[in-house]
Simulated assay, not measured.
Amino acid sequence: MPNRAVIKTDKAPAAIGSYSQAVKVDNTIYLSGQIPLVPATMELVSDDFREQAHQVFKNLAAVCDAGNGSLDHIVKLNLYLTDLTNFSIVNEVMEEVFTQPFPARAAVGVKELPKGAQFEAEAIMVI
């Protein structure tokens, strides 16, 4: 059985279902999807897509930090957008919060996300 541990921090939104914020297996950490909730209030940061994208990456960064890593340790991202016309904004925000080489990535258009969010991201991090 691999070495498995749950990663949890109060600096990111608490799980709103039956899942962990992240699970570490050996040197790989699987981060659950983050939506743009402010951890202290568990409410959406705003209706503005750019602000939502920044909050999502801020939340991911907090979980990375709890796992002794950072956004720069992310090797794979899966992005979910309710409106793919915001794809260029995601690219701009990623250039602000990540350094090269950028992680591998997929982006998927979805009908809706929890709590009315416009954006969600999940990740795999290797430390």
Rank of each mutant, 00 (worst) to 15 (best):
K115E: 12
V110M: 10
K11E: 11
R4T: 14
G109C: 12
V38E: 11
Q100K: 13
A14M: 08
D10Y: 00
A14C: 01
A123M: 05
V23G: 01
P2S: 15
F49H: 11
Y30I: 13
N68C: 02
R4V: 15
E96H: 06
G69K: 06
Y19G: 06
G116I: 04
D10C: 00
M1N: 09
R50V: 14
L84Q: 11
G116R: 10
F102K: 13
E92G: 14
R4K: 12
P2R: 05
V56E: 09
P2C: 00
V6I: 15
M42E: 10
I29F: 00
A106T: 15
G116S: 13
Q21Y: 07
S18E: 14
N91F: 01
K111T: 14
K111P: 01
I89C: 11
K115F: 14
I89A: 11
I89K: 10
G109Q: 15
E43C: 03
A53T: 12
L37E: 05
A5F: 05
K11F: 03
G17M: 08
V108E: 14
L84N: 11
S70A: 12
M94S: 05
R105I: 08
P36S: 08
Q55D: 10
K115A: 11
F102P: 01
Q118Y: 06
I35W: 02
D26P: 09
V126L: 07
V97Q: 08
V108G: 00
P13D: 03
I74D: 04
D10M: 01
V90F: 02
K8N: 12
I16E: 13
N78M: 01
H73A: 12
P101H: 03
D26H: 07
V97R: 13
V25K: 13
A40N: 13
K58M: 05
V90E: 09
V90D: 08
I127C: 03
A123Q: 07
S70E: 03
N91E: 14
E122L: 10
I29K: 01
K76W: 06
A123H: 07
V75T: 14
L71W: 02
E112R: 03
S46D: 10
Y80H: 01
V23C: 06
F87S: 15
K11S: 12
Q52Y: 10
L77G: 01
Q100L: 07
D10H: 02
P103Q: 07
A22G: 11
E96A: 04
Y80Q: 13
A15C: 10
M1C: 04
D10G: 00
L71Y: 05
Q55H: 07
E112V: 04
N68W: 02
V108Y: 13
N3L: 04
K111A: 07
Y30K: 03
V63R: 04
A104F: 12
S88I: 02
I124C: 03
D47P: 00
V108C: 06
M125N: 07
Q34D: 01
I124F: 02
A40G: 10
T85R: 15
F119N: 08
R105V: 12
T9R: 07
G67D: 11
T41C: 06
F119A: 12
I124T: 15
E51T: 00
